[in-house]
Amino acid sequence: MASHRSPRRTPLPVHGWPARVTVLSAAAASAAALAPGSAGARPADDPARPSAATVNSRIDRLYEQAEGATEKYNATAESAGKLREQVETVQDRVARGQAKVNRLRGELGGLAGEQYRSGGISPSVALLLTADPDSYLDKASALDRVSSRQSLQLRQLQAAQRELKRQRTEATGKLADLEQHTRTLRKQKRNVQRKLGAARRLLHELTPKQRAERERASREGGRGQQSGDTPDLGGDRASSGRAAAAVAAAKSAVGKPYVWGAAGPSSFDCSGLTQWAYGKAGTSIPRTSQGQRGAGKQVPLSQARPGDLVVYRDDASHVGMYVGNGQVVHAPHPGAPVRYDPVGMMPVSSVTRP
């Protein structure tokens, strides 16, 4: 009699899922690291020293590149998460399929044994059994003594075995895809870290006064207003109740740190903030800024209403939420917390109303 015990589902391999890495505040870290006269800082009058404008331009470009790389990382992480769920589903089906095969084998073996013991066979077969018991099944088959019930169970067992093989092949393929996504995540993570590290090193090229000026300009956003202040949002009304709820959630995150790859509730990157805000409003939108660009109706910037997603740059590598009165709430870059800024702070690619 075959064992009826169902197999355990094979656990997922441990891949060391890439941890989300908190990016330290670049401005704060550099200010602490380089006091006037610190080792490694070049004198302000060094003729080989690039101008503050040049350094700031390079830093901004690195942040832009890092943000694009972060959105690629987010997209890969989202795909890997879906693959992980699919692998678990397929492995569950494999476990159930193996249990079915075991059960059918047991039933078929039990039926054959019962038939043998009961003597429910013709005298001619009984004589054959007496002469050579070891060849019972072969001779019984040759004499067409396999019952219709046995035939049905044999077909069921064969079908179950074929399906189990297909499911195992599917699971193997998805596991291979998951391994590839994990390797891609590690590569993208290193790419982001390199660009952010280069930006931090460039910050060290600035004098303490220049760093303070950069930080002040970054926080003011060209409006003469600190990020901790709440701007006058005017009388603009959201396009829907859920949009209004998303705006309220985004505003509640003002002041929380930027962390690449983070989607709340204590830290955010740009698309993580908008996804989290709409999630708090009961609406699911894609994880990346590129995905969010296509997550609703496109409207002209002149018709933007609170709750609309403002996507920036041709590659859609940054996104913020319009909150009215020409303002967005967004997670800018490492070292800058979630804050209000003018909607035209950088080139607008599109405006989407989820």
Rank of each mutant, 00 (worst) to 15 (best):
G235L: 08
K280S: 14
A249G: 09
Q275E: 13
Q292S: 08
R237A: 14
R242K: 09
R293Y: 14
Q290W: 12
W260S: 01
Q298L: 14
A281W: 00
Q298W: 11
R242D: 00
A248E: 14
G235C: 07
T288Q: 06
Q303M: 10
Y258K: 02
Y278I: 03
A238S: 12
D269F: 08
D269E: 12
K251M: 15
G282N: 10
P265R: 09
K251S: 13
T283H: 14
D236Y: 05
I285G: 02
G235W: 04
S267L: 01
D269Y: 06
T288K: 05
A243N: 07
D269P: 02
C270G: 10
A277V: 00
S252K: 03
S289I: 06
G282M: 05
A304N: 04
S271W: 02
G272K: 04
Q292R: 05
Y278S: 04
S252T: 01
A263Y: 00
A238R: 08
A250E: 02
V299C: 14
A277H: 00
P265I: 04
G235H: 08
Q275N: 11
G234Y: 11
V254I: 13
A249P: 06
R293I: 11
G235F: 05
A238P: 02
G296Y: 15
R242C: 00
G255D: 15
G279R: 09
D236V: 05
G241E: 15
A281Y: 00
T283W: 13
W276T: 02
A245G: 04
P257K: 02
G261P: 01
V254H: 08
K251D: 13
K256V: 04
K297H: 12
G235I: 00
P300N: 12
W276I: 06
G235Y: 05
V254R: 14
C270D: 15
A238K: 04
S267D: 03
W260A: 01
L273R: 07
Y278R: 11
A281V: 00
G264S: 09
S266I: 01
A244P: 00
T283R: 15
Y278W: 13
V299L: 13
R237F: 09
G279P: 01
A262E: 03
W260N: 00
A238D: 04
G296A: 10
G255F: 13
K251L: 15
G294R: 15
K280L: 05
G279M: 05
V299F: 13
Q292V: 08
G282F: 02
R242L: 06
T288P: 03
L301Y: 10
L273K: 07
V247K: 03
A248N: 12
S240D: 07
A253K: 04
Q292E: 14
R237V: 10
R237C: 05
L233Y: 03
A248K: 15
S239A: 15
I285E: 07
G291R: 09
G234Q: 05
V254A: 05
G272L: 04
A253T: 04
Q292P: 00
G255K: 10
G291S: 08
Q303C: 06
P265K: 12
